[in-house]
Nucleic acid binder design. Sequence first.
DNA 1: AATGAATGAGCTTTCATTCAT
DNA 2: AATGAATGAAAGCTCATTCAT
Lengths: 204, 204, 204, 204
Amino acid sequence: MTDAAPPAARTETGADLRRLILDHTRRLLVTGGYDGLSMRKIARGVGCSATSIYLHFEGKDALTHALIDEGMRRLYAELDAQAEDRPARRLDALCRAYVRFGLANPEYYQVMFQLHPERMARYPPEDYRRARRNVELFGEALADGAAAGVLRLVSSPDVAAMALWTALHGLVSLLLAERVDARVAGDAFIDAAVRQALAAFEVQ
Amino acid sequence: MTDAAPPAARTETGADLRRLILDHTRRLLVTGGYDGLSMRKIARGVGCSATSIYLHFEGKDALTHALIDEGMRRLYAELDAQAEDRPARRLDALCRAYVRFGLANPEYYQVMFQLHPERMARYPPEDYRRARRNVELFGEALADGAAAGVLRLVSSPDVAAMALWTALHGLVSLLLAERVDARVAGDAFIDAAVRQALAAFEVQ
Amino acid sequence: MTDAAPPAARTETGADLRRLILDHTRRLLVTGGYDGLSMRKIARGVGCSATSIYLHFEGKDALTHALIDEGMRRLYAELDAQAEDRPARRLDALCRAYVRFGLANPEYYQVMFQLHPERMARYPPEDYRRARRNVELFGEALADGAAAGVLRLVSSPDVAAMALWTALHGLVSLLLAERVDARVAGDAFIDAAVRQALAAFEVQ
Amino acid sequence: MTDAAPPAARTETGADLRRLILDHTRRLLVTGGYDGLSMRKIARGVGCSATSIYLHFEGKDALTHALIDEGMRRLYAELDAQAEDRPARRLDALCRAYVRFGLANPEYYQVMFQLHPERMARYPPEDYRRARRNVELFGEALADGAAAGVLRLVSSPDVAAMALWTALHGLVSLLLAERVDARVAGDAFIDAAVRQALAAFEVQ
DNA sequence: AATGAATGAGCTTTCATTCAT
DNA sequence: AATGAATGAAAGCTCATTCAT
């Protein structure tokens, strides 16, 4: 039959629908936040039925989790790309890459780090473990730096990394929330904040 | 003393309903976050009709804003109570008081600092101005310390205060979100993180 | 006691509140129609509590009925003022006065003639009787004209008057509803429509 | 013929729900008027959930508009069926068909011609254009009659048609509103009123 | 792989009205 | 004469999800 149509047409939507859904979900997250998200809005945006989303994701949670995982992988890719041998320089690069990633990907950042704990409780453990790798990169740089005597550590590398991460996260999230005074916010401020967060590790 | 006479008359209803509503709203915020909040749930919790809430608050926004303002005032009270003459000590006390407040009042903290910017856009300007006073307290301590030569500043007190605030906020919000590794989180970690944030201002 | 205040102050709001309510209700009717009417909106506009309206009117129905009655009286006053001895001229003047009144007082006209019959079912019979006087004025002019041989009647004056009224009502209500083509509506159109409605009574 | 096969499959549900909704909406309009209308009442009447209505109509407005359009088409069908060559007779038949339609379909008539202008403002322009075709039928009869010298016109056919329409509308709407004296209303009255409205076009 | 139809629960808000004061 | 507090009912609408096809 002629109306059996080109099979390629289906292929394009077929496996790619998953991608389309993820991408449009991200777009919606930027404008309306997590709560402004709805399966129907996503479907409308992608041009498929709401039901179709359930063919690719178990539910809203699973969709969100997929997005988180994707974000975590991308963040890792960016952080891991900071190929710098000297630990102090690497730490600095990691911080700046982290902030850059957050500001450039508000939608990922939101679901990755600003979701209600209850919602995260159902996050798959193995994904969680991978997510933690991101902070570990900071810990490794700190440990390397301490070993080389170029970074000063007063607590364990893990603790220091976690504390550093909280500082960076505060910077990113308040900037994204537009809570930093507009007259202050800007590259200069970001630079100052990152320096301030790193000052603790400077050897005199 | 004389005007203390008839307030008991309407203990359960009257002006007290406003308080009950605010209090129960806070309770709901802890468990379900801002999006888990609903006028009906609040009403059910306080034991009044959903309509009654509208007698005391113009709408959900106004109710939230009242809560934010209340939180900001309480935070200010706590920060302002850190009566310490020596600037460096005062700054330290401010930081610890801030974190303490956030962890002790997750519901306030959430609406105060983690609301979607769109939702904050409707926040009354005069309340906003008062809210900013909180960060200013940090700026004053920094300026005082710099003047006295006991704190080192590489940027303006305002910028430094804002950057310090972002660090503290990151600490509080990740702890509240239960995103800090349980094996790490604890008073020791908080102490380490605060020290790390303050290290930038230490004079060698 | 000094706070017993000037009694005149109360007098002004006292009996006059009824008037204020009626007047503001009319204003609301223009903008939002009957269904856009609400006791609270009225109260807000007048500056009194919603409860206070119930001191002056039994309910929304009674308030509406009072407005209808007032409108009917005003319409009667306008029609009755068309002092013209010659019946044909008087009839013409009555028609034009009717249309003028309707267009000038859309809020009255709406409740007077465009309310759902169910809502009118509770209208007090004695008021209804007075309302009917308005159409009777047309009937009298028609009867006078027929007796004088200057108006042609093919049905009883009552029937003819009623039919004439329906035509005028159609004109007014479609104009108020903005359903007459904007390029057509205007004084010329009104004039043409009234002439057309009166043509039936012309003696050759 | 072959594609007429499986429509019985979804007799109660499927595409038929749309019809059921429209029909029940009409029924509700008769008893309670436009303002007595509610999505829930409709749903209760059809035996479906309120949500289901939104599957077939975008909202209350769209539902109403669909009803208006349907009514306009039906009215047009009735008017257009008045196949009469002689213009004067055709005009008479049009008038009587119009009134007949209005009295027989109070629910359609209501939404078609008695809706608040604000509500009509959102009516789709292309539907509006079709609706206007109804009045144009009167204009054409008038123009034909004038050209043939059997109808007297003192204004343009368009204006005369519009004026005639307002008269008929007044007749229908006051009858539907039960505002015409019960002792008068009846076929004789309708006949008298229509004659009166048409008298203007009679050639002496 | 994809869909249209359907739903129950829920949302914020407004309504007319009553009651104690 | 006037009010603040309160309410049940209802409004229009959106939600995540299921199911038969």
